[in-house]
């Protein structure tokens, strides 16, 4: 579904991604792990064609879109849903208009029909219908993330979903809601999914395929077992706090 081959990317002279290759099959979920500044968001932007790599190839649904013109890319992007780091909700539009954005732009549906669709999505997200006419600024961070997810899935049958740190900085309950939502979408609609996150616990709940990115290079690409057993120094360092916390969780009341 998504395949990157030997991607190199630099902002002006600063290399951000070096020789990045991986693929995500239909209906698969892959989690990208890595510390701040390692280039995770950049990978998602390259998949969407928002930035162009200096070298390497990008394939979406079997088609080479590396050098596709903007007009062609716009068509490809309509099959993808992206949840931006920080939401990137349109702040001059209401929650309803944000969720209905795709339908407003690309279909001839009536406003009433779009409102109805937005209501259904609010339900699906577990948000109150009363939020329809509220501006995004008035929502809490966790609600904004959920609306951003709603806006991304409102496209007609997205086949690819990209999430950029959907749970960072949220409380455990909101995090759980969002993790469940992402899983529900994958199971119900069979979309190929990439989730960028720092949070390893959530990562294990969402996927069994992982990439670890370090300074713009892929240092690990494989499944859960492989990740836990990986001897690579940076991967070990990254997993250390998680492994420690798993061991120290009390199993029951100790006398």
């Amino acid at each position: 579904m998504i395949r990157l081959e030997n991607i190199n990317f630099a902002y002006r002279d600063e290399p951000v991604l070096q020789d990045v290759s991986f693929s995500v099959g239909p209906g698969e979920t892959k989690v990208i792990l890595g510390s701040s500044g390692s280039g995770k968001s950049t990978i998602l932007k390259i998949i969407l064609g928002l930035v162009r790599p200096q070298s390497g190839r990008v394939f979406i649904a079997g088609k080479d879109v590396t050098n596709a013109r903007e007009g062609q890319l716009q068509k490809v992007r309509r099959k993808m849903g992206m949840v931006f780091q920080g939401g990137a909700l349109f702040d001059s539009m209401t929650v309803g208009e944000n969720i209905g954005y795709y339908l407003l732009e690309h279909t001839n549906r009536s406003l009433a029909g779009i409102e109805q669709a937005a209501r259904e999505i609010l339900d699906y997200l577990g948000l109150s219908q009363g939020l329809l006419d509220v501006l995004p600024d008035e929502l809490s961070g966790g609600m904004q993330r959920r609306v951003a997810i709603g806006r991304a899935v409102a496209a007609e049958n997205p086949q690819i979903m990209l999430y950029d740190e959907p749970t960072t900085g949220l409380d455990p309950i909101s995090t759980l809601t969002i993790t469940k939502l992402i899983n529900k979408l994958r199971v119900e609609k069979g979309v190929s999914t990439i989730v960028v996150t720092h949070q390893i616990t959530e990562a294990f709940e969402m996927a069994d395929q992982f990439i670890v990115l370090h300074d713009g290079r892929i240092v690990f690409d494989g499944d859960t077992d492989g990740l836990l057993r990986c001897r690579q120094e940076y991967v070990r360092e990254f997993l250390q706090p998680y492994l420690a916390s798993v061991k120290s969780i009390p199993v029951g009341p100790t006398e």
Binding site: M80, Q85, G86, A88, F90, S92
Partner: peptide, 21 residues
Amino acid sequence: AEIGSMKSSEQLDAMRAFGVE
């Protein structure tokens, strides 16, 4: 200011992600 703040909060990228130029 309007376009610039949309740029800095990635709203322009979001627009492009939705196939809108």
